[in-house]
């Protein structure tokens, strides 16, 4: 008994061929993905092997879940995981909304030329690489010679210089501030682009009706970019186990390590540097699975909450 009628299949192909131009548009991306993302993905199997250079990826011995077990039972992993999650939550709560607020404020600014200047300047920190930022941070935060401590003491906020980098307690705040500094302009651009795309007629109509600034913002601007906001939100969720490797790696030290060690740096220390590529790959695999899970959950949540179509 034929379940699939030949008709369905032919219909599919006919429709497919009719869309030849759209399908062609998708093609370059797919080719690139296959060549550069999927081909090397076969290397993930080394997570289940004891990889050695000589035997190569396919020749190395199979060890199944040995690395998985050693990761789970490792006491330092739990702490690294805790830090990673805490930082990600803080990031979602602070670093995510900040550019939106910033963009809205910038949008409301009166002087258009100054507004452009501000927009340009806000984006400047994004150009600087983390390596340089993290090299400068100890200089800026140095207790006796850095300008941060000098400023805080000058304004009487603190009496004695504070060693920000040696205390675990400051590390979360430090990372968040640094990320804000670096990325607020970056994300704001996306929001500003979205705002720029809003139909001007709506604003004109609102003005005729006597709407105030706040009302315009509340009833036109924000709803219009709701799609963009939820989109970026979903994409950020998928980074929940991402963490900021550069900051933790470059600013981590004996004093603050109880807070600065995240999964990525731990993986780097134990895995890559020691040549334990199988171990490192297994950590990456585990992280990927969990991140994917979070993405799917987040997407479903957003769909329910905002009645937008989410990502899928």
């Amino acid at each position: 008994m034929k379940k699939i009628s030949p008709g369905k299949k032919t219909r599919f192909w006919r429709a497919f061929r009719r869309q030849w131009d759209l399908q062609l548009m998708v093609l370059p991306a797919i080719v690139v993905l296959i060549l550069f993302s999927y081909l090397p993905m076969s290397g993930i199997i080394i997570a289940f092997k004891d990889f050695t250079f000589r035997k190569g990826i396919f020749g190395s011995d199979w060890v199944g879940l040995k690395h998985f077990q050693s990761i789970i039972t490792d006491p330092f992993v739990h702490r690294a995981l805790y830090n990673t999650v805490m930082l990600s939550l803080l990031r979602l709560a602070i670093v995510f909304p900040a550019p939106l607020i910033f963009a809205l404020m910038l949008n409301e600014m009166r002087f258009p030329r100054l507004k452009r200047v501000y927009q340009t300047m806000s984006y400047l920190p994004y150009f600087v690489s983390w390596a340089i930022v993290c090299a400068m941070v100890p200089v800026w935060l140095a207790p006796n010679t850095g300008f941060v401590n000098s400023l805080l003491q000058f304004f009487g906020i603190i009496k004695e210089p504070v060693a920000f980098l040696s205390e675990p307690g400051y590390f979360y705040g430090l990372t968040i501030i640094l990320e804000l500094w670096k990325s607020i302009g970056f994300s704001a651009i996306i929001y500003l682009a979205a705002i720029a795309g809003i139909d001007q007629e709506q604003y004109e109509a609102a003005m005729i009706d006597g709407a105030s600034k706040f009302q315009k913002m509340r009833y036109i601007t924000i709803p219009s970019i709701r799609g963009t906001v939820s989109l970026l939100f979903i994409l950020s969720i998928s980074g929940i186990l991402g963490g900021n490797f550069d900051v933790s790696y470059l600013l981590g030290n004996g004093g603050n390590i109880s807070r600065s060690e995240i999964l990525q740096t731990y993986n780097y220390h134990m895995g890559i540097i020691q040549g334990r590529f199988s171990y490192a790959t297994m950590v990456g695999l585990m992280l990927g699975v969990v991140a994917l899970a979070f993405l799917l959950i987040g997407n479903a949540v957003i769909k329910k909450l905002t009645k937008t179509s989410g990502l899928f």
Partner: peptide, 14 residues
């Protein structure tokens, strides 16, 4: 690919 990747060595060999 946003979540999974082969790593440094497979990418290099590729």
């Amino acid at each position: 690919p946003m979540f999974f990747s082969g790593g440094m060595i497979p990418s290099f060999l590729n």
